[in-house]
Design a protein around this nucleic acid. Sequence first.
DNA 1: CCCGGAAACTAACGTATGTTCGTTTTCAAG
DNA 2: CTTGAAAACGAACATACGTTAGTTTCCGGG
Lengths: 234, 234
Amino acid sequence: MARISGSNGARTAAAIRSSARGLIYRHGYAAMNLRELATEVGISPGSLYNHITTKQGLLFDLIAEHMAALLAETDAALAAAGPDPMARLRAFIAHHLLYHFERRQEVFIANFELRSLEPPNHARVVAMRRSYEGRLIALLDAGVATGELDIPDTHVAAYAILAMLTGVCTWYRPDGRLSKEELVALHTRLVLDGVRRHRGEAAARAAPPARPAAKAQGKRARAKTPLSPRRRGG
Amino acid sequence: MARISGSNGARTAAAIRSSARGLIYRHGYAAMNLRELATEVGISPGSLYNHITTKQGLLFDLIAEHMAALLAETDAALAAAGPDPMARLRAFIAHHLLYHFERRQEVFIANFELRSLEPPNHARVVAMRRSYEGRLIALLDAGVATGELDIPDTHVAAYAILAMLTGVCTWYRPDGRLSKEELVALHTRLVLDGVRRHRGEAAARAAPPARPAAKAQGKRARAKTPLSPRRRGG
DNA sequence: CCCGGAAACTAACGTATGTTCGTTTTCAAG
DNA sequence: CTTGAAAACGAACATACGTTAGTTTCCGGG
């Protein structure tokens, strides 16, 4: 009994990827074993190799496809948002969240199984990730240029924003208390209020915890100056 | 040649934990193997079992100790900050970042090897984590109560803030461009501007893209209701 | 109808891994 | 000096895993 009746290469390949996503998401790449994957797909372990090169190749394919899709869809969303920097920033935030809600597993895998990729594969994925971060950094820079945003360091801000937005996936559940739209609204506000230029009360809001004294002196002088450029001793 | 001259139980145990932290941090729990650990410590694989119960027990010990320390030190930092809600919030942010800078490996392990814990161990760590989140939620609630903070949903805000702050550890490097203090200042500002009450321009900034309807009904009544229970599996 | 490839099967290989076991050596207490 | 626990050793066990090999069956094109 081999070559089961009605078997279909494309369908099996899709089932493998789908099951692999779930297994890696739940157990991690290293802890996932191909026998369990084969069982879930409904074929024998050896048959997997009609559709994958190696376990490592399977992981890379899953991650690379996800990253490519994320980049493409993000660009589409930004294009649809038009030229206004703030509109584009809102579009980025909303798209990031909605895409991540939709594909929690892929996102999680791409973020936390990066280290499981062998060097050449690793480098390729990192490059795609950099590219994605670069899009947000560019948006923030654009907002700073128009004066609508007030961000001392757009790189740091971009990483912080991405961490915050991506973090939602770790606890979001479709049947949870809050809808996707509510979460988008909440996080849009959190992000924008964090980077927007506020009238009047500009300075001293990042004052060190202990001393409420340094209240009125700095005004907004340092807002545009780059952060201390060089490293410290050790 | 066994029981090497000058050997010392406590020192070996510490070396095991230290090496295990590094190995799990770099390779992940499942991918770490005890032979490599033993080699790094400088003993034979079997000798590990003079100091650990099982591989799983070692992971649990590492995580549980970290969580206990985090809770204890956080409480100390909050106590030192006095009673003012905003001062306490600043203290929480600063302490969270500094602690996480100091112990990046433990933090990473505690966050991303949770799933590698067997159910009973998993439950105990989750409880500690809940407790930590609870401290921030309480701080936000206190700020809302005094009117200094303006937060539609303190649970969501707390998770978002923790994700943002913890995310810094994924890219912070001691010899990087920004010092710890600068990062604390930047993130304190990002967080506080995200949750602070802004004068005048209060409303409509979180308007949902699609349906602005469900806006005025809940107000902040539901800020206290618990989220739908988190489940592990998919 | 026939035939070659696609896609499945069974079986096994080689290795790696967590863990156990019995032994041996050091050190400190009596 | 004796003794017993602590802490190391080397060896092995049992299993699990990724992967390969050879074989068998179904299906579509000639």
